[in-house]
Simulated scan of single mutants.
Amino acid sequence: MHALYPLKFEPILKEKVWGGKRMSSLLGKNIDHLSNCGESWEISGLTGNVSKVRNGFLAGNDLSELIEVYMGELLGEKVFDMHGHSFPLLFKFLDADDDLSIQVHPGQNMAMERHGQRGKEEIWYVVHAEPSAELIIGFQEDSSEETYLKHLQNNTLKDILRTYKVQAGDAFHIPAGQVHTIGKGLTICEIQQASDITYRIFDWNRPGTDGELRKLHTGEAAEVIEYKAGEHKINYPDTPNEPVELIKTPNFTTRLLSFYQNLELDYFFVDSFVVYMIVEGSCTISCPGFSDKLKTGDSLLIPAEINAIKLTPDHSCKLLETFISNQA
């Protein structure tokens, strides 16, 4: 059997009523066939949206087929033991030319009980922000289901939610149960548990791509919302040429690599696949028997059996590095 190598996948592009054109202008995606591209699913194992390899001898094979054949060599032994043939994470770019719906995702227990899927914890990294762009996560102060439903009924829900003014480079943690939305003028990198369960709370009375108002999930949402206020912006040091941890939870670890010098990375003790998402600049990635160029908007999966990686920047590069830790 041939040795594994770092894998690129064909992006799965999604038409969204709130989408725009920056997926092409900023991230280099071919969106000519879409009017408003809102999402690029970079690496996905979800049914109906399974990513296909686009480089090397495995080109044309999908991620599920690779897991079936390579198992722990691809995912990492501990990851395979825990998740089996199900790829545990989902990697996306999002481009909002209009406000997304206000929404919430259920946690692990409720998601499994209701839908037979994982919960949805996620992290956002802002790739691009127009002036005055903002997003919403959680409540301004501790709230309650009664207060939430009253404001929802009165179309004043935004008045009690926490709004963040944002700029490129900002990062946010969104645990399951947090009410949230992305505002217009933002291009975001989203890393999350592999789940596509969304409870839509308010959609600005806007029709969907089919001309009909999209379904709301008021009752389901009220049962899973976390009404306690909290801080969701991630404050991290500006430390070039070494990994900077943004988040570490039982579900995944994400670090920012901002570098203008060569980096040599050792993943021997990680025992997990590693995913790179390039958010600024470009670089060359190399390991024994493999070398390739990565530019802004590219994503790459490094199989768990590959331990040593070298990154050579073209001037400078920023990427998000994600894997599943031994412990949170």
Rank of each mutant, 00 (worst) to 15 (best):
L75W: 04
P106K: 07
I160D: 01
E321I: 06
S132H: 15
P11C: 00
E212W: 09
T181C: 15
L135M: 15
D238A: 07
S101F: 00
G76A: 06
W18F: 03
E10G: 06
I302E: 00
I306C: 05
E65N: 13
N326G: 15
E39I: 01
I234L: 15
C287N: 03
G289N: 04
W124I: 05
M1T: 11
D271R: 01
N155Y: 12
F93L: 10
V127I: 15
P11R: 03
L46P: 02
L213P: 12
W124M: 11
E122K: 08
S325P: 13
D298R: 01
Y236A: 02
Y236E: 02
L7P: 08
L213T: 00
T209W: 03
R206G: 13
G138Q: 07
F273N: 01
A194N: 08
G45N: 08
K120Y: 02
H105L: 04
G38K: 13
N235S: 14
E280D: 15
S143Q: 02
K21S: 13
P243D: 00
I201M: 10
D98S: 15
S25N: 10
G183N: 00
P240F: 00
E141Y: 02
N307I: 02
F139S: 02
Q327A: 10
Q193C: 12
K92M: 08
A304W: 01
Q117V: 11
T296V: 14
S132N: 15
I160H: 01
H151C: 12
D97N: 15
E190D: 06
A96Q: 02
P207Y: 02
K120L: 01
F9V: 09
C37V: 08
W41Q: 13
T254P: 06
T181E: 13
V79G: 09
V53A: 05
N326A: 13
H115F: 04
N235G: 13
I285N: 09
Y164R: 07
E121P: 08
K21D: 12
Y236P: 09
V79T: 09
L34E: 04
T249R: 12
K215M: 09
I182W: 10
L213R: 13
S64K: 14
G185H: 04
H128T: 03
D95Q: 02
G38V: 06
A3P: 10
Q117F: 05
G72R: 10
G219I: 05
E134F: 14
V69P: 04
F139C: 03
H315G: 09
M82A: 14
F93K: 06
G211C: 00
G56I: 00
D210T: 02
N109C: 08
D298F: 01
A221W: 07
N307D: 05
F269R: 12
F273R: 01
L74F: 08
T47C: 04
D62C: 12
K8T: 11
F93W: 05
T239N: 11
N262T: 14
E231K: 14
D170C: 05
I191G: 06
I174N: 06
I137M: 09
S51W: 06
Y70P: 10
